[in-house]
Computed example of a mutant assay.
Amino acid sequence: MPTLLYLASAVLLFLSHAVPSWPGVRPALLGRLGRPGFMTLHSLLSITTLTLFVLAYRGADTAGHLFFPADGAAKLAVALMPVAFILMVARVTTRFGEPAAPRPAAGIYRITRFPGSMGLLLWALLHLQATGDARRVILFATMAAIALFAMVKNDWVLRRSPAPKAAAFRAGTGAVPFAAILFGRQRLVLGEIGVGRVLGGLALYAAILHAHPLVFGVDPLYWLP
């Protein structure tokens, strides 16, 4: 039963992100509730389902592995996690505009069309390949599913939008990091990203790394002498 509740809470967590942001649902809720009301409802729903998910996670059966991590999996996660944090910090601190009418691509958006979702996906996949037990596989697979859904949904919104800004943004950016730059559709402007965002991402990573054993009970640096 605890495992079934955990799986159900994972589905609810995914739906709490997917349903309110679904094209058609989001505009209807915005029209009825206004932006402040929509953001409040979305936040409460997300916090509630996340709390249920955490409680179910703590009570789930921890026995059994679906796979065993490869040698060096933990080292790979530690080495690449700063990239995930920089992507997410840059996303939060860079103005985007409306989903169907984004601002011209600048900063981190020159590197990837979906910096926040790409950062979350990288975080989830790095942890997924470094774990293997059923409880944490469900956790990180759920987060990866949320990130992938966000990317697919946002790309769908851009493609369906009649706004010229949306078409220009999509044509000039790429989902895969650095793809648009490599194919000449975009150029790298490090000054737009800024040293502050990079340092902010690294500082947040260092703080999480330090708190990880206390908060999550796992030391990512256990392999160090």
Rank of each mutant, 00 (worst) to 15 (best):
108 I>S: 02
117 S>G: 07
88 M>W: 05
117 S>N: 02
166 A>R: 01
178 F>S: 04
125 L>S: 11
181 I>R: 10
120 L>I: 14
78 V>R: 12
101 A>G: 10
107 G>W: 01
100 A>K: 13
135 R>K: 04
166 A>N: 06
83 V>A: 09
161 S>E: 03
113 R>T: 00
162 P>D: 02
153 K>V: 08
130 A>I: 03
86 I>S: 00
175 A>W: 06
73 A>T: 00
170 R>E: 13
128 L>V: 02
167 A>K: 10
180 A>M: 10
74 A>Y: 12
85 F>A: 11
168 A>Y: 11
160 R>Q: 09
97 G>C: 01
146 I>E: 11
173 T>R: 10
122 L>T: 09
145 A>G: 11
72 G>A: 09
87 L>Q: 02
136 R>S: 09
85 F>N: 04
98 E>V: 13
139 L>F: 06
129 Q>M: 15
137 V>A: 05
177 P>A: 09
128 L>D: 00
71 D>P: 15
109 Y>E: 01
92 V>F: 15
112 T>G: 01
93 T>K: 08
84 A>M: 10
99 P>F: 12
154 N>Q: 14
155 D>I: 09
160 R>Y: 04
144 A>N: 08
105 A>T: 03
156 W>N: 06
160 R>N: 13
93 T>S: 14
153 K>S: 10
136 R>T: 08
119 G>T: 01
179 A>K: 03
96 F>C: 02
110 R>H: 08
95 R>I: 13
88 M>H: 07
76 L>V: 12
123 W>G: 00
121 L>Q: 05
162 P>G: 00
109 Y>A: 00
179 A>Y: 02
172 G>R: 13
76 L>T: 09
148 L>C: 11
99 P>D: 00
152 V>Q: 00
77 A>M: 15
